[in-house]
């Protein structure tokens, strides 16, 4: 099945006081490299990590990750 998951992590980090990848990683329990891979769209996080990220930014999950079925 095709489809692409995109995300707004970079924007959300910027809007939250230029939060670093390392700090976000620390808050959700993953490494800085994992955050970088997620941001670059090269790794799709688990549902639990995705919800944690949304929780850190105080936004719904759909504002962090988007699914494009045609992508």
């Amino acid at each position: 099945m095709s489809g692409v998951i995109s995300n707004n992590l970079r924007t959300l980090r910027f809007m939250n006081g230029e939060m670093s990848q390392a700090e976000l990683g620390l808050r959700i329990g993953v490494t800085r490299q994992t955050i970088a891979a997620i941001e670059a769209g090269k790794y799709s996080p688990s549902l639990k990590a995705a919800f944690r990220m949304a929780d850190v930014f105080g936004v719904p999950l759909a504002e962090v990750f988007q699914w494009d079925a045609k992508g």
Partner: peptide, 12 residues
């Protein structure tokens, strides 16, 4: 870094 446990991507 050495003290950190493997995260979900490391495990994957």
């Amino acid at each position: 870094e050495a003290k950190l446990p493997m995260d979900e991507r490391d495990i994957a």
